[in-house]
Amino acid sequence: MPDAIVLRGLTKTFGDTVAVRDFDLVVPQGALYGVIGPNGAGKTTTIRMILSILLPDRGELSVLGHRSAMEAKDRIGYLPEERGLYKRMRVGQFLTYMARLKHADGADLRTRIRSWLEKVDLGGVENKRCEELSKGMQQKVQFLAAIIHRPDLLILDEPFSGLDPVNQRLLRELVDDEHRRGATVLFSTHVMALAEQLCDHVVMIHRGDKVLDDEIGAIRARYDPRNLLFEPLDPAADVSALAQIEGVALVRRDGAAWDLTLAPAASPAPVIQRVAAAIAPARVELRRPSLEDVFLNIVSAVSASGDDATLRAAVRDNGNGRREPRP
């Protein structure tokens, strides 16, 4: 089975700016890949090159076994970041048009459109003009336009931006459905928490360079957790004993809980036992590194100029999933 996407040494410059530099990527068929990185990292440029909307200056690519996405357009679904609708067109007409452009105008197209609209809670809007819909509704229609022809490869550029939590979840389920159906999914986001929840493989881009390309599980394993999260059963409990426990190097308050940094040589399991024995816990757990942490880790390693707070802000969408604020 050929890989869905293969990129080799892809480079694209705009004037003096190198948008993407020597980019290699292999996405196997049936995978669910997330491309993450802050705004301006080169995600959209990469996606546009995959789709042959932009031509790379250098490098080779293959999409669904073809030398160019042009030859496989009908098998690809694409939701661009800059998405729009024909304002005066009716929703049903628009979806029919998009399906016909993808050569998917079977006899059952009308029924299919209607059932899709119902599935995303848009039953009855078929004859409304696109401009009459709310922004969230328009976004759902745009997503339907990307999948109406049952693509083998689904490429979504920032699919979750601008959606409320309810619709974010709906969209996540739809993407999952497509993935389960067998479609290869590649999506980009600057919100790392979303990628963490959704995909099984992550590619990180920073300033046009690929800085990470790995399975979520492998990433987690590689970035060995060195912190524990501890929350006492009794919020008023005296926690001064924590600092004395063997293997704990540093104790910091983190909201209602405490963040314990392990001593350099300490193994987590005995420390957890000792903590639980010292003070009755509501919860004590290994603090897994989030993608955000991993990203910051990598970026500060590759570029000394990394301003931590700025980068953190760039990859975090307020209210979109971080569990707790970090000091």
Binding site: L51, M70, G77, G84, Y86
Partner: peptide, 16 residues
């Protein structure tokens, strides 16, 4: 209109 509506990139994913 297609350009300012940003519908053009959707179209370009389907046609050259």
């Amino acid at each position: 209109e297609e350009k300012s509506n940003r519908v053009v990139e959707v179209l370009l994913s389907a046609v050259s």
